[in-house]
Design a protein around this nucleic acid. Structure first.
Lengths: 198, 198
DNA sequence: TGCAATCTTGCATAGATCGCAATATTACCA
DNA sequence: TGGTAATATTGCGATCTATGCAAGATTGCA
């Protein structure tokens, strides 16, 4: 059995696959932005990327996944950022700083364009909300892990949902501006939270 | 133009429609629970309710909506509950009490069964997450309204997302138990939040 | 009773997704 | 280098949700 976890593609087969995947993604997103997500059919994408429609499903689980796979893996990034925080930091500071940290590495122009596509397309928007659930779970686990618990308790869970709620708000605010990063929005929302809860 | 908003159905036509709608709902949910949501096709439902498949779409927007329309209208209930709170109550207390209030009116045995169906069916679960977004928006607006703002500001929004986050957590906890109401879970989560944020 | 409004249904169609089997391509070993 | 095993690509057919359309049936009401 081969053991190339997370290495650069080495064989012709792998290089080709990576190239095709990227091509499909690029073309699909171009079409989505040009004419809209709903108005673009799988046949359109297949044609633009010069593969068969059937092949699309060997690369992506669904039409929607083409969009989401083009964005950073948020759960992973957040978990990482939490891991970099001091273990004795208060929980709320921990998530605040971890989120700000993540946001700093997350923002590319492409990210904002995709974010707006998602925001303006009901199907995608709905699916994104659903994805936040995973982010919540991942964050709760990362927090538990960081403070030495085997599994998230209520404290971790409440902190996680609160933080993700603020994340959603802040991202929305950020998308509505031309700001390059969302840090400012995060900070402001967290400050508001502390004011409200005390 | 007729002006019967929210009156009991009066004509034969309306009574019939209401009866058919209820029948479709009952039969569909029975089938969903018996054999699973995905495993039940629209044709199955149509047959069980003795209507044509085409007619289903005159009663419900989609297969998923059959499930969700059988549950209480949460945004409306919450907005109402917020309206019953004193205007000078601190924001966080306002949502906490409003949610507890709502929960008290919301819990029926059917609710829990449907809740579990949704929890255990990925498609439904995803759509539910998306629906929470509307609840968030409605809550933020109700709060703004209650404290005399024309539109939600950051304070209202942060309060709303936080409360909805807690709502989600609490409902999940409640579904996992045999408790009749979720009040206890709400109270505990809010208490935790205050501890975390201070 | 009879016209207007509304419902129900059948039929046709689009689009996403999946299983299957034939074909083509790549990997790798002797 | 030839040849076989592993993997990819594709076409075809089928299923399922959803929607438009028009014919026919039912109900409301003057």
């Amino acid at each position: 059995m081969k053991e190339n976890m997370s290495e650069a593609p080495v064989g012709l087969r792998e290089r080709k696959r990576a190239k095709t995947l990227a091509l499909i993604q690029t073309e699909a997103i171009r079409l989505f932005i040009e004419r809209g997500f709903e108005a673009t059919t799988l046949a359109d994408i297949a044609e633009a990327a010069d593969v068969s429609a059937r092949s699309l499903f060997h690369y992506f689980e669904s039409k929607e996944e083409i969009v989401f796979s083009a964005r950073a893996n948020f759960p992973a990034l957040i978990a990482e950022a939490v891991g970099r925080r001091p273990a004795d930091e208060p929980l709320l500071d921990m998530v605040e700083n971890a989120l700000v940290d993540t946001a700093a590495r997350y923002g590319s122009p492409q990210t904002k364009i995709l974010g707006r596509l998602v925001r303006d397309t009901p199907v995608l928007r709905a699916r994104e909300q659903a994805k936040y659930e995973h982010v919540e779970r991942a964050l709760a686990e990362a927090l538990a892990d960081r403070i030495g618990l085997p599994a998230p308790d209520t404290k971790c869970r409440v902190t996680a949902v609160t933080a993700i709620g603020i994340l959603k708000l802040s991202v929305e605010a950020w998308l509505a501006t031309e700001d390059s990063g969302a840090e400012m929005h995060f900070r402001a929302a967290f400050a508001e939270l502390r004011r409200i809860a005390c």
